[in-house]
Each structure stands twice: as structure tokens, then as C-alpha cells.
Simulated assay, not measured.
Amino acid sequence: MMSRRQFGTSALAAGAAFASQKVSAQPSKRRIVDAQVHLWKAESEDWKWVPGMKPQMPEPFTVEKLVPLMDQAGVSRVVVVPPSWPGDRNDYALEAARRYPDRLAIMGRVALKNPQAAALLPKWREQPGMLGVRLTFLGATQGWLADGTADWFWPEAEKAELPVMFLTDGQNAQMARVAERYPRLQLIADHMGIGGNTPKEGRIADAVSQTASLAKYPNVSVKLSAAPNYSSEAYPFRDFTPHIQRLFEAYGPKRCHWGSDMTNGYDKATYQQRITHFTEELPFLSEADKDWVMGKSILERLRWA
């Protein structure tokens, strides 16, 4: 039989052990990495918009606006995706990455109509902050997937080991031939495959289905981004839960990437809500899944050390 002193000593030891277990069982601080934010400065004589195009917001969204939002929301890093309205230029994104090299990196734009741009790809990642390429096949450019315009790009990007983000107007099924023909080319489907007129035409479910069909290719991953922008509901955007879950189950946590795309539909959700949508409102995600989706997966996919 234990003495009172022995009992007390044993209880203290057990309590210390329990406290130690509680501490070790707590997850480490999650690293949040936003897989897509557009940055742009005001239009000027030497920084003109493409005729007929306009920004997503009336005011410029500059790096001075982004970084405080990152700090407030607890976002460690952001992948800067240069927008389409200034044309195929990356200069402002490169400037932002130079100013914040530990927090910002870039998926730059390439002039697909100019095959001579192939000469730029072998040294693409030598540009400070540049991680890969982002292509858009929307509006006047949506036919480039099928008409041969983009054909020169895929083998050159694979050879240069450049990851590629792509956005189509609900045409992701056309990317199957690219994924199959170039298995070493890392392809990232943007916005679940939803872009352009897809939402207006009621083709969201079909676009998600096309994107899910690409999951059989190991070199394809998906950005689970932009749900607030396309949802017909307020936060937490329950109408998109089935779409997000379908893609998550198809690709798994290591091939799914959270992204805010916050400037598209800026007034539909705060930055914090775009984060808590995934960290608090999707019950099918485990804590380990969230670690991957909210940051680890995009860092690994883009080789962003």
C-alpha cells in the first residue's frame, strides 16, 4: 500500500507526464501559403492595360496593401500571379518579390503567341523570385489549347522543369493530352477548373468534373481556389462544399492547394474568411490534411524552399 508521500510523488509525476503528452500532441503552428494573389499598380504611360481589358478592382492592389493583410491573417507566403490586363509582363511582380524575397514568389506570364519566348524558359527560374509559369485560356485566347498556339510551350516547359498553372473556361478535359504526353511537366489546374463564362453559363459542375478527371495523372494538381468569387451563397459558401470535397477526394491532400484569389470578388469575403473557410468549415479535412492544403503542398509542388 502506498504512503501519502509516495502517492503524492506518483500523482505529480503522472501529472507532469500528462502535461508533457498534451504539449507534444498539439500540432505545430500551421504555415499558410496563399497559392494565388494578383498584384498591380496604377495604369500609366509606361504601364498600359491591354485594350478592352480592365482590372478586377477600381483601385490598384499593390504590395503595400498585400503585406499588411498577410500579417493580419497569419499568412506566411504568397504566390504572386501577374494579372492579364497589363499584358504578358512580370516586372511589377518581380519588383514585389525583390522587396519581400522570403514571403513572395511568382508564377510569371509568357507570350504564347511568340514561340521565340522558348529561349527564355531555360533560365526562367534564374529571375529572383520566379518559380514557374501561369497560362490563361480565356476569352480571345481560349482557342489556343486546340489550335496549336500553345503546342511549342509544353515540351519546352517540361525540359526547363517549370511548373505551370493553367486556367481555362471550363475546358480542362483538353489538358489530358498535355498531362499524358509530358509526364514530367508539373501542371496545376487553377480555380477548380472554373473560369471565364463557366459560372454564368451554369457549367460549374461540369468544369469540376473535367478537373476531377485529370487526377489520374500524377503530374496534375489542383488549386481549390476562388470559391467565394463564384458561390451564390454568403460565407461559408456551402454550395461549393461538394465541389471542393469531390476534388479533394480525387487528388488527395498533397495535390490540393488553397488560394484566395482575393481581388476577384474582393467584397464577397475577407482574407480571414477565405482562410477559415478551409480551416474551420470543411469537416472532411483532417488537421493533417489542412497542413498540406493550406501550405505544404504548394511549397512542395513549386519547389519553393
Rank of each mutant, 00 (worst) to 15 (best):
F18L: 14
T270I: 10
L94W: 11
D151Y: 05
V220R: 04
R274P: 11
L112G: 08
K268S: 06
V63M: 14
R125N: 09
M130Q: 11
A17T: 12
R89Q: 04
S286D: 05
K200S: 14
N114T: 15
Y235P: 03
V81R: 08
D206V: 13
L135C: 11
A269S: 08
L39Q: 11
A35H: 12
E201S: 14
R4A: 06
L214Y: 03
F18S: 09
N90F: 09
S221Y: 04
Y271M: 15
K290L: 12
Q26I: 06
F237H: 08
L112A: 08
E158D: 07
A189L: 01
R99F: 04
P253L: 06
Q245S: 13
D291N: 15
K113G: 15
S10R: 13
L187Q: 01
P242G: 03
R89D: 02
M53F: 12
A269P: 07
N90W: 02
P155G: 00
W124N: 05
H277I: 10
M165W: 03
S213I: 05
S20P: 06
E95V: 09
K254W: 06
K159Q: 02
R31C: 10
A73P: 06
H243L: 10
R274I: 10
R246S: 08
K41P: 05
T270R: 01
T168W: 00
A234W: 00
T279N: 05
A150Q: 04
Y230I: 13
S225Q: 06
R4S: 05
T62I: 03
E281G: 13
E287K: 05
A17C: 13
T149I: 00
G195E: 01
L94S: 11
G74H: 02
S231A: 09
E281P: 12
G148N: 00
C256D: 08
S232V: 15
L185R: 00
Q171F: 03
E45P: 09
P253T: 07
M70C: 06
K254G: 10
P199E: 02
M70W: 04
F137M: 10
A150R: 06
V37P: 09
T168R: 01
D151P: 14
Y266W: 11
Y266D: 12
A215W: 00
P236V: 09
Q56D: 12
Y251L: 13
P83Y: 02
R98M: 12
R301D: 08
E59Y: 13
G265R: 01
G196S: 06
T149C: 04
W152S: 03
M107Q: 11
